[in-house]
Amino acid sequence: MNSLVQTPKTSARAAESTPHSLHPKVVAKDVNVYYGDKHALHDVTIDIPEKAVMAFIGPSGCGKSTFLRCINRMNDTISIARVTGDILIDDQHIYDPKLDVVQLRARVGMVFQKPNPFPKSIFENVAYGPRIHGLARSKTDLEEIVTASLQRAGLWNEVKDRLNEAGTGLSGGQQQRLCIARAIAVSPEVILMDEPCSALDPIATARVEELIDELRQNFTIIIVTHSMQQAARVSQNTAFFHLGILVETGPTDQIFTTPRDKRTQDYITGRFG
């Protein structure tokens, strides 16, 4: 299993725009996840490079979301879930009992499959994180953070005149970008995205993909996707999961052109999944 650990060497895109991509941001060692008696994830060991996009692909139910949710300890909210093994972010054990989950989640943001804006105004949605973490010292501070986040999420021009309207009143694609703005408002280091485009139409999807590409300048992004094309378009590295096992990981173009494992090849060519 350990031999599967890969760092990108050949991804040209990753290499030019992200000079630090050789440095692993997130390191997982022998991670196992159980839901009650069900063993959902087997000995996952992977390095996730900094300031690059990592895509998780694989057939439904193979454990992509489960692994993603280990990285910000969202599995803690599921009472029957049990995680063993080590996950380190910047060499710090995130399952260390001394570590505060609240701070971890401020460092590791998450965007969900279905846009889930809070039933509050657009402004309050983005201000949510900064408020609970006390990131803004004054009202103008807060306004700056909100404006900057909305701008970076590419939503500013569409909502700047209606910041006090309900976030739930936006279109699906706008809502998803609002959720991204909400996540980046606390300046996380890692952003987890679980099928962020699955509820969006192609235009909104393209918009979000563009955004992901821009965000990788500053954030380490991990995205779960069912679309091979999307993985190919936005990611520099790809990990393929199958039946709770991390089968193969490597630079995206290598995984897609010359996969080493037969199962990866079958999945990519559409023979199962």
């Binding site: 969202m74 701070q103 943001g109 998450m110 889930n116 809070f118 949510y128 609970i132 959720c179 996540a183």
Partner: peptide
Amino acid sequence: SLRDGSYGMGATKSETIKK
């Protein structure tokens, strides 16, 4: 999903409930 969104932002349980 709303609770998850809030926990994902690093809110505690009572903050999530209250806000």
